[in-house]
C-alpha cells in the first residue's frame, strides 16, 4: 500500500516535514488534497491556520482513511491572504474554512458561504492572529511592575523591564514620560 505522504510527493513538489507532515507549496494546495483523497483519504479531519509571525498564514489540514489506518497532515505556507477553497474536494472543509477565515483572515476563494461561524457579524479583527491585540491586556496595567524600585531605572534606560510571561513586549505599560 502506498503511503499517503508518498502519494503527495509523487503528485506535487513538496517535502516531508517533522511528524510526517508533508509541506507543499501554496499553489499545490488543492492538487495535494486532491491526490490524497483519490488515494483513499476520504475522511477530512480538520483544517486550520497557524500564525508563525510570518506575513501570511500557514494552513494545516489533516486527513485520514476512513479506517483510520493512515493519516496525513498537509502544511502550506500561504504567499497571499487568498487561497482556493477545498470545499470542492472535501465538502467537510466548509466550516473549517469559515472558522479559519474569521480567526486568521484567510480568504477562501470559491467557498460557497464564507460567513463568520463562531464570531458575531459585527466582530472586528481576526482574533487568532498574533497581531490581534486583546483589549483587556492593552487597557490593564500589568501589576508585576514594582512601584518605585523598577520605575526609576527604566526612565534612565539603564535596565530592561521584565515582561509578563507570554505577553509581547509591545503590550507593556508605556513609560510615564
Amino acid at each position: 500500500m502506498t503511503r499517503l505522504s508518498d502519494v503527495v510527493l509523487q503528485s506535487v513538489s513538496g517535502e516531508l516535514g517533522p511528524d510526517a507532515a508533508v509541506v507543499v507549496a501554496a499553489e499545490d494546495w488543492l492538487a495535494a488534497l486532491s491526490s490524497v483523497k483519490r488515494a483513499g483519504a476520504i475522511f477530512f479531519d480538520f483544517l486550520t491556520g497557524v500564525d508563525s509571525g510570518t506575513e501570511f498564514i500557514q494552513l494545516v489540514a489533516h486527513v485520514a482513511t476512513p479506517e483510520g489506518t493512515e493519516r496525513l497532515t498537509l502544511v502550506t505556507q500561504l504567499t497571499s491572504s487568498v487561497v482556493d477553497s477545498a470545499t470542492g474536494i472535501y465538502p467537510g472543509a466548509n466550516w473549517h474554512e469559515r472558522e479559519t477565515a474569521e480567526m486568521f483572515g484567510v480568504v477562501f476563494a470559491g467557498h460557497p458561504r464564507l460567513d463568520p461561524l463562531l464570531l458575531g457579524v459585527d466582530f472586528v479583527g481576526h482574533p487568532l492572529r498574533k497581531d490581534f491585540a486583546l483589549a483587556a491586556r492593552a487597557t490593564r496595567p500589568w501589576p508585576g511592575l514594582a512601584s518605585d524600585a523598577e520605575a526609576a531605572p527604566l526612565r534612565s534606560g539603564g535596565r530592561r523591564r521584565v515582561p509578563p510571561a507570554g505577553v509581547p513586549a509591545t503590550w507593556e505599560v508605556p513609560n510615564a514620560d
Binding site: 518605585d148 521584565v162 509578563p164
Partner: peptide
C-alpha cells in the same frame, strides 16, 4: 518581602502588591 513573584506568575493578574523601600 513584596518580591512580586506571585504577582508576576499569576495567570489572571489578580494579585496587586504595593511596597516601599
Amino acid at each position: 518581602p513584596a518580591c512580586l513573584v506571585c504577582v508576576r506568575e499569576c495567570p489572571v493578574w489578580c494579585i496587586t502588591i504595593t511596597s516601599h523601600d
